[in-house]
């Protein structure tokens, strides 16, 4: 363990405004203004082939696809991968919470959906990613008013320095009635971008 070791950002992606960019380069654009249509088109474009995707709530679909874009470039082990996840957002799981609330409001028509209820926590999306990519490592989901590079930077460094993970996938995955935005970046020993707060904020505001 070295307190002075510097880590690098190997890759990053944005999924917002009907477009997907990886390392600042456009990968996919779609005219669909509706999120469900956009995310389904992105899923097909990326040849994701994971039927359980369609059972996920919107936040998990957004987080899953953004993570999948970066992780499938990593030649991951089929058995187990030591990659931690540190995600954050503003709206928590509010989009799905509202759907569940609507299903239990009327006592005469009280039919809450188990498939909706299981997504009424934001960190469920971390489980979906972990199942797909066989991640058995640390994961955390934080709620902030705004994107918080300082916190993500501190936590990722701590996990790497204490050898709790070989790599850390960090970022912001926010979705509510007003829109959606995913920004994820992978921190490890190698990469072109220095892992510091200034660089995290710089790549967050790209595109």
């Amino acid at each position: 363990m070295s307190l002075n070791q510097n880590y690098r950002i190997k890759s990053f992606c944005h999924l917002k405004n009907q477009s997907l960019t990886v390392n600042g380069q456009s990968v996919f654009d779609d005219a669909s203004e509706d999120f469900q249509t956009f995310i389904k088109n992105a899923y097909k474009f990326l040849k994701t082939d994971y039927p359980k995707f369609f059972k996920m709530d919107s936040l998990s679909k957004l987080a899953f696809l953004a993570a999948d874009v970066l992780l499938k470039r990593e030649n991951l082990n089929e058995e187990e991968n030591n990659i931690a996840l540190i995600f954050s957002n503003r709206a928590s799981s509010l989009d799905t919470d509202r759907k569940h609330q609507a299903a239990i409001e009327n006592e005469e028509e009280y039919f809450p959906s188990p498939a909706v209820f299981v997504y009424t926590l934001p960190n469920i999306c971390l489980g979906e990613i972990s199942i797909k990519h066989r991640l058995y490592s640390e994961n955390s989901f934080f709620i902030f008013d705004h994107f918080n590079a300082e916190h993500l930077h501190l936590y990722a460094n701590s996990l790497l320095r204490n050898e709790k993970a070989e790599k850390v996938l960090c970022g912001w995955v926010d979705l509510d009635e007003n829109g959606y935005e995913a920004f994820l970046y992978l921190v490890e020993n190698e990469g072109e971008i220095e892992h510091n707060i200034k660089q995290i904020n710089r790549i967050y505001t790209l595109s």
Partner: peptide, 17 residues
Amino acid sequence: LGLDSIDALELIVMLDK
């Protein structure tokens, strides 16, 4: 069809509803 335990709960709700 490869349904899972959450699907089973959904089907139970569907029978009721």
